[in-house]
Computed example of a mutant assay.
Amino acid sequence: MAVFELLYDWAFAVGVATGVLLVAVGLPAWRRSVFIYRLEGQIPQVLRVLSDAAAAGLDLKSAVEASASLALRPMAQVLRRVLSLTEMGGLTVEEAFWQVAKEVPSADFRRFALILIEAARSGARLPEVLNVAARSFATVVEFRQSVASQLRPYVALFYAVMVVYAVLADVLVYFLLPQLAKFTPPQAPVGGIQPYLLSRDTALRVLLISGGVGGVIGGLVVGRVVYGVARAGLLHGGISLILVTVLLWAPLWLGI
């Protein structure tokens, strides 16, 4: 019971600390999701650069070096990792690509690496193969970006719902409850039932718990729908919990 009493007395600190913990847990998954999204979006561009470099007569390693110098992050970092494995690890370009493909958590990047490896090993006309692959990947990336652009507003909607919840909770706690207290004079128990009006502190804590649970569940849903990984939504769940906690206690700090 002592633990629950402590949580009850330090509700604001517990709310903020829990939000920070959720952010810390969800941030790595969110960053990985963003990394994969950006990496896969840059595959068609890299394939075109590799195709042009191969058509100009460069070997595969030189083509990768040219692509690494022109690509944006995070693809540039991945290609430099491939080159470092060839220079420091003694691997061929094909072996280095497959090694990196096993390290990167992206099915599309593994397909990209497999196409590049098989085209280089088979002796096929590399520029033509890479150009066809670039068009295929471009279609997939365009579709996924279109879906992502349609889902992204749900993140803003999630935060809007949490802000509205906090504002309505403030109206209830700081305006309606005092008015109800004025119209509920103390009186003797009637039929063994003692009239009871919820106090402001109790109401704040109940609303904080309700908002926190709703924020975490909503964040998990947002993570699963928008990022494909529920854990990535814990970042938004934690931020929303901190936001609700601050908004619930802000009128108290302002002397309302």
Rank of each mutant, 00 (worst) to 15 (best):
V3T: 12
Y37E: 12
R121A: 08
V213T: 14
I115C: 05
V161K: 09
T139N: 11
A156T: 13
Y196V: 15
P195C: 07
S69D: 14
F12I: 03
A138I: 08
R144P: 00
R38G: 11
D9M: 01
R48A: 08
T184D: 12
G212I: 00
G15I: 10
V23S: 11
L234S: 02
Y154F: 14
Y8I: 06
L177Q: 05
M88S: 14
L39F: 04
G214R: 02
V141E: 05
L91C: 01
L27N: 07
Q187V: 14
A230H: 00
V171R: 06
I43G: 01
V46E: 11
G191W: 06
R200I: 13
S136K: 10
R73D: 13
Y174W: 13
V244A: 08
S67E: 06
L7F: 08
A148M: 09
V23P: 08
V93R: 05
L21E: 02
W30N: 05
S122H: 05
G215I: 02
V129N: 02
V132D: 04
L126K: 04
I36G: 00
M75D: 01
G123R: 06
Y37F: 10
V173F: 01
R111D: 03
G211N: 03
L70G: 01
I209F: 06
L235S: 00
V147G: 12
A17R: 06
G237P: 01
A29W: 03
L207I: 08
A63C: 06
A148Y: 09
L6M: 13
R31E: 08
E87Y: 01
A24H: 11
I43E: 01
E65Q: 12
D108G: 13
A66E: 07
A134S: 07
G238E: 00
L252V: 09
V104Y: 02
V161C: 04
A71Q: 09
N131F: 04
A181P: 03
I117L: 12
V14M: 11
P127I: 06
M75L: 09
A56Y: 10
L114W: 04
E103H: 11
Q179E: 03
A113V: 10
P28I: 07
A203V: 07
V46D: 02
